[in-house]
Amino acid sequence: SSGGSSILDRAVIEHNLLSASKLYNNITFEELGALLEIPAAKAEKIASQMITEGRMNGFIDQIDGIVHFETR
Rank of each mutant, 00 (worst) to 15 (best):
Ser1Gln: 11
Ser1Asp: 14
Ser1Leu: 11
Ser2Phe: 07
Ser2Asp: 14
Ser2Arg: 03
Ser2Pro: 13
Gly3Cys: 07
Gly3Val: 14
Gly3Ser: 13
Gly3Leu: 13
Gly4Cys: 07
Gly4Arg: 02
Ser5Phe: 08
Ser5Arg: 02
Ser5Asn: 10
Ser5Asp: 14
Ser6Ile: 10
Ser6Gly: 11
Ser6Asn: 12
Ile7His: 12
Ile7Leu: 12
Ile7Pro: 12
Ile7Thr: 13
Leu8Met: 09
Leu8Ile: 13
Leu8Pro: 13
Asp9Ser: 06
Asp9Val: 06
Asp9His: 06
Asp9Phe: 05
Asp9Cys: 06
Asp9Glu: 08
Asp9Arg: 06
Arg10Ser: 11
Arg10Asn: 14
Arg10Gln: 15
Arg10Ala: 10
Arg10Gly: 08
Arg10Glu: 13
Ala11Leu: 13
Ala11His: 14
Ala11Cys: 07
Ala11Met: 10
Val12Gly: 08
Val12Leu: 09
Val12Trp: 13
Ile13Glu: 04
Ile13Pro: 01
Ile13Ala: 05
Glu14Pro: 01
Glu14Asn: 03
Glu14Cys: 04
Glu14Gly: 02
Glu14Arg: 03
Glu14Ile: 07
His15Pro: 03
His15Arg: 14
His15Ser: 13
His15Leu: 11
His15Val: 10
His15Glu: 15
Asn16Met: 12
Leu17Val: 08
Leu17Ala: 02
Leu17Ser: 01
Leu17Asp: 01
Leu17Asn: 02
Leu17His: 01
Leu17Tyr: 01
Leu18Pro: 01
Leu18Lys: 05
Ser19Cys: 07
Ser19Asp: 09
Ser19Val: 15
Ala20Met: 11
Ala20Lys: 05
Ala20Cys: 05
Ala20His: 06
Ala20Asp: 01
Ser21Lys: 02
Ser21Gln: 05
Ser21Met: 10
Lys22Asn: 07
Lys22Gln: 09
Lys22Thr: 08
Lys22Leu: 09
Lys22Cys: 07
Lys22Arg: 10
Leu23Ile: 13
Leu23Phe: 09
Leu23Pro: 03
Leu23His: 11
Tyr24Trp: 07
Tyr24Met: 07
Tyr24Leu: 07
Tyr24Ile: 07
Asn25Asp: 11
Asn25His: 12
Asn25Val: 10
Asn26Met: 15
Asn26Ala: 13
Asn26Trp: 15
Asn26Leu: 13
Asn26Thr: 14
Asn26Ile: 08
Ile27Ser: 02
Ile27Thr: 02
Ile27Lys: 04
Ile27His: 01
Ile27Pro: 00
Ile27Met: 13
Thr28Trp: 01
Thr28Ile: 02
Phe29Cys: 02
Phe29Leu: 12
Phe29Asn: 00
Phe29Glu: 00
Phe29Arg: 02
Glu30Met: 09
Glu30Asp: 09
Glu30Gln: 11
Glu30Lys: 10
Glu30Val: 12
Glu31Pro: 00
Glu31Arg: 08
Glu31Asn: 08
Glu31Gly: 07
Leu32His: 00
Leu32Asp: 00
Leu32Phe: 03
Leu32Lys: 00
Gly33Ile: 03
Gly33Ser: 08
Gly33Gln: 03
Gly33His: 02
Gly33Asp: 02
Ala34Pro: 02
Ala34Asp: 07
Ala34Lys: 14
Ala34Phe: 11
Ala34His: 12
Ala34Gln: 11
Ala34Thr: 10
Leu35Cys: 04
Leu35Thr: 02
Leu35Ile: 11
Leu35Arg: 04
Leu35Val: 06
Leu35Gln: 03
Leu36Tyr: 04
Leu36Ser: 02
Leu36Gly: 00
Leu36Ala: 03
Leu36His: 01
Leu36Cys: 04
Leu36Glu: 00
Leu36Phe: 04
Leu36Trp: 05
Glu37Met: 14
Glu37Tyr: 09
Glu37Leu: 11
Glu37Ile: 05
Glu37Val: 07
Ile38Pro: 00
Ile38Arg: 00
Ile38Ser: 00
Ile38Asp: 00
Ile38Ala: 01
Pro39Asp: 12
Pro39Asn: 09
Pro39Glu: 08
Pro39Arg: 03
Pro39Tyr: 04
Ala40Arg: 06
Ala40Met: 06
Ala40Tyr: 05
Ala40Cys: 04
Ala40Glu: 04
Ala40Ile: 07
Ala41Ser: 12
Ala41Gln: 10
Ala41Pro: 06
Lys42Arg: 14
Lys42Phe: 15
Lys42Glu: 15
Lys42Met: 15
Ala43Ser: 03
Ala43Gln: 00
Ala43Arg: 00
Ala43Asp: 00
Ala43Cys: 05
Ala43Lys: 00
Glu44Ser: 09
Glu44Arg: 08
Glu44Ala: 14
Lys45Glu: 15
Lys45Leu: 15
Lys45Gly: 08
Lys45Trp: 14
Lys45Thr: 12
Lys45Cys: 06
Lys45Asp: 12
Lys45Arg: 10
Lys45Asn: 10
Ile46Cys: 03
Ile46Asp: 01
Ile46Gly: 00
Ala47Met: 07
Ala47His: 01
Ala47Gly: 02
Ala47Pro: 00
Ala47Asn: 00
Ala47Tyr: 03
Ala47Asp: 00
Ser48Glu: 11
Ser48Ala: 13
Ser48His: 12
Ser48Thr: 11
Ser48Met: 14
Gln49Cys: 05
Gln49Glu: 15
Gln49Gly: 07
Gln49Leu: 08
Gln49His: 06
Gln49Trp: 07
Met50Cys: 03
Met50Ile: 03
Ile51Gln: 03
Ile51Glu: 00
Ile51Tyr: 03
Ile51His: 01
Ile51Trp: 02
Ile51Asp: 01
Ile51Ser: 01
Ile51Leu: 08
Ile51Arg: 00
Thr52Pro: 00
Thr52Leu: 13
Thr52His: 11
Thr52Lys: 14
Thr52Met: 12
Thr52Ile: 11
Glu53Met: 05
Glu53Ala: 09
Glu53Gly: 07
Glu53Val: 05
Gly54Phe: 04
Gly54Val: 01
Gly54Asp: 04
Gly54Ala: 04
Gly54Ile: 03
Arg55Cys: 05
Arg55Phe: 06
Arg55Asn: 05
Arg55Pro: 02
Arg55Ala: 05
Arg55His: 06
Arg55Tyr: 06
Met56His: 02
Met56Ala: 04
Met56Ile: 15
Met56Leu: 15
Met56Phe: 11
Met56Val: 11
Met56Asp: 01
Asn57Arg: 09
Asn57Lys: 13
Asn57Asp: 09
Asn57Cys: 10
Asn57Leu: 09
Gly58Cys: 03
Gly58Ser: 02
Gly58Asp: 01
Gly58Asn: 01
Phe59His: 11
Phe59Ser: 08
Phe59Cys: 09
Phe59Trp: 15
Phe59Met: 07
Ile60His: 01
Ile60Tyr: 02
Ile60Lys: 01
Ile60Glu: 00
Asp61Trp: 04
Asp61Arg: 05
Asp61Met: 05
Asp61Gln: 05
Asp61Pro: 01
Asp61Ser: 09
Gln62Cys: 06
Gln62Leu: 14
Gln62Asn: 10
Gln62Tyr: 15
Gln62Met: 15
Gln62Ala: 12
Ile63His: 10
Ile63Trp: 07
Ile63Met: 08
Asp64His: 15
Asp64Trp: 12
Asp64Leu: 15
Asp64Met: 15
Gly65Thr: 03
Gly65Gln: 10
Gly65Phe: 06
Gly65Tyr: 04
Gly65His: 09
Gly65Cys: 04
Gly65Pro: 04
Ile66Ser: 11
Ile66Ala: 07
Ile66Gly: 04
Ile66Thr: 09
Ile66Gln: 06
Val67Arg: 01
Val67Asn: 01
Val67Ile: 15
His68Phe: 09
Phe69Ser: 01
Phe69Ala: 02
Phe69Trp: 07
Phe69Asp: 00
Phe69Ile: 02
Glu70Arg: 10
Glu70Val: 10
Glu70Trp: 12
Glu70Tyr: 14
Thr71Val: 10
Thr71Cys: 12
Thr71Arg: 10
Thr71Pro: 12
Thr71Met: 11
Thr71His: 14
Arg72Gly: 11
Arg72Tyr: 13
Arg72Trp: 13
Arg72Pro: 14
Arg72Leu: 13
Arg72Ser: 14
Arg72Lys: 14
